[in-house]
Each structure stands twice: as structure tokens, then as C-alpha cells.
Design a protein around this nucleic acid. Structure first.
Length: 120
DNA sequence: TGCCTGACGGAAC
DNA sequence: AGTTCCGCCAGGC
């Protein structure tokens, strides 16, 4: 039995850390996978942050995680296909006043919320 | 068992 | 300044 379907404790902690940070992102603001990774110590790639996000999605009980506020470093909605509908992410953002055009957050630089700065 | 891919990012060219 | 390559680590086939 070496195939743990359940995440290891270490991974679970990682998930929770990521989710916790995402929950702290204020409405109308956005952050990035890399920023979160950096805030948590950058020990793992930003890719792992995205991976952690997937782990939050399905549970759905965890909907408290505003995943739509996390985009990639270019302000692109790279994770939109993981939402219920391809447009759900953009709609959620626009509902908070974030303008999105062509899958790209407008004024991304101004709306960017960096946990390692805001949360210190 | 091994190769490819991926909610990424930064360095190299 | 735009494009390509490589590293990160886990999962799928």
C-alpha cells in the first residue's frame, strides 16, 4: 500500500497555507501563484501553488477560497478552465470591479496584491 | 517504469 | 522587448 490517495500531512499543510493566503486577498484585488509561493518561502515552485488550488476546487465546501483572485504573473486568467464554466472566473472578477479583457486583468499592476508585502 | 503534461516563473537568447 | 528554455514536483497514461 504505497499509494496514498490522500495527500500527506505535509501536502495538506501546504494546501491550507495556500488557501489561507488566498482567503486574505481583498475583493477587487488579485494576486499571483508566484507571489503566494514566494510568501510561503518559495521552497516549492509556483506550479505547486496552482496544484494546491486544484485541491481546493473540488471540495467546493471550501468555496470560501476566492480562487478567481489568483492569476498568473502576467495577469492572465490561466485557471479559468478549472471553474464551473469558462467564463465564471472573469464574471466573478468583474463583479468585484476588476476589468478583464481577453483573459487579461486590466490595470493588473495596480490591482496586484502581494502577500509578502501586505501581510508582513 | 518512464515520459509527458500542467491553475507558473524566471533566466537565457 | 518578445520568445524560448529549463526547473519545480506531482499525476496521468
Amino acid at each position: 500500500m504505497k499509494t496514498p490517495k490522500e495527500p500527506t500531512e505535509k501536502q495538506r499543510n501546504f494546501f491550507e497555507d495556500v488557501h489561507e493566503v488566498v482567503r486574505l486577498v481583498p475583493p477587487g484585488r488579485v494576486t499571483t501563484y508566484g507571489a503566494i509561493a514566494h510568501y510561503l518561502g518559495a521552497r516549492h515552485g509556483a506550479r505547486m501553488v496552482g496544484w494546491a488550488m486544484i485541491a481546493s476546487n473540488p471540495a467546493l465546501g471550501l468555496h470560501a477560497v476566492p480562487a478567481h483572485r489568483v492569476v498568473n504573473r502576467n495577469g492572465l486568467l490561466t485557471g479559468r478552465h478549472h471553474f464551473a464554466t469558462p467564463t465564471a472566473m472573469q464574471e466573478a472578477l468583474e463583479e468585484e470591479g476588476v476589468r478583464v479583457e481577453n483573459d487579461e486583468v486590466q490595470e493588473f499592476k495596480r490591482l496586484f496584491w502581494d502577500p509578502s508585502i501586505e501581510l508582513m
